[in-house]
Amino acid sequence: MDKNIRQFYDALFDLIGLMNQPQRDSILLREAGVSLDRALFPLLVVIGLRGTVGIMELAGMVGRDHSTVSRQIATLGRLGLVTRLAGTSDRRERKVAATPEGLEIVKALDAARERLMQPILAQWDEQDWKTLVSLLRRFADDASALPGPGKDKKLPQ
């Protein structure tokens, strides 16, 4: 394997591992002043970022199965944080959007995430930070454009 690709995946897996640590979620929720089950808030954040998203697409984005996400969306709905919508092209398709209350929580989490990142950002040159963000966006967009499961080519793992 190419050394740069290996180093990239090594760093990526380190970041994913950090982001998936339950204690980090607890710290973020506490910093935001939000009382929400740790399993629910990532769904709410993605919905808040995407606007309206299909349940199947959301399940894929968070790496959970459809039935689990569907139950969790029902819980978020009972809490008044999301609303279910019928699909526009297929009535069987279920979509979900954040309510104004849900968007307020997303805003609080965004602000808390920013405060928690400040010690890291304080060590970075502004141009380095902008370059990292730009290159990450480019990589995510390029990777998203690759053929997905069920097509001729498989995505790298």
Score class of each variant (00 low, 15 high):
37 D>L: 06
149 P>T: 02
44 L>G: 04
50 R>S: 13
120 I>H: 06
86 A>S: 12
84 R>C: 03
73 I>W: 04
55 I>T: 12
72 Q>H: 15
75 T>S: 14
33 G>S: 07
141 D>S: 15
47 I>Y: 01
86 A>L: 09
142 D>M: 14
76 L>W: 02
88 T>Y: 04
72 Q>W: 14
123 Q>P: 06
45 V>C: 02
119 P>E: 05
122 A>L: 10
155 L>K: 13
84 R>I: 04
116 L>V: 01
89 S>A: 13
70 S>C: 05
48 G>Y: 00
63 G>R: 01
70 S>D: 08
96 V>H: 02
77 G>M: 05
32 A>Q: 01
108 A>W: 03
93 E>V: 08
110 D>H: 07
116 L>P: 06
139 F>Q: 11
25 D>K: 11
62 V>R: 09
8 F>G: 10
128 D>F: 09
114 E>F: 12
4 N>A: 15
11 A>R: 14
18 L>F: 12
94 R>N: 01
121 L>Q: 02
100 P>K: 13
102 G>L: 03
6 R>V: 13
112 A>V: 04
13 F>N: 08
87 G>H: 04
155 L>S: 09
19 M>Q: 09
28 L>W: 02
92 R>P: 01
130 K>Y: 11
114 E>D: 13
88 T>M: 02
6 R>W: 06
81 L>Q: 00
56 M>L: 14
14 D>F: 10
67 S>E: 04
21 Q>Y: 13
60 G>H: 03
97 A>D: 00
50 R>Y: 08
18 L>P: 01
133 V>K: 07
59 A>I: 05
11 A>I: 14
85 L>F: 06
112 A>R: 06
97 A>M: 00
25 D>Y: 10
95 K>E: 00
27 I>Y: 11
22 P>F: 03
25 D>C: 11
137 R>H: 11
15 L>R: 10
78 R>H: 10
84 R>L: 11
75 T>D: 11
155 L>P: 06
119 P>V: 06
76 L>E: 04
124 W>N: 13
147 P>N: 00
59 A>D: 00
141 D>H: 14
62 V>I: 12
58 L>Y: 14
81 L>P: 03
77 G>Q: 13
76 L>Y: 09
23 Q>E: 14
130 K>G: 09
22 P>E: 02
28 L>E: 02
126 E>T: 15
32 A>M: 03
94 R>E: 03
132 L>K: 00
99 T>Q: 05
2 D>P: 14
119 P>Q: 05
48 G>W: 01
112 A>D: 01
129 W>S: 08
127 Q>K: 09
70 S>M: 09
58 L>C: 08
25 D>M: 12
23 Q>R: 12
28 L>N: 01
120 I>V: 14
94 R>A: 10
6 R>Y: 14
102 G>Y: 02
90 D>G: 05
135 L>V: 08
89 S>I: 08
77 G>L: 07
12 L>Y: 14
116 L>T: 06
96 V>C: 01
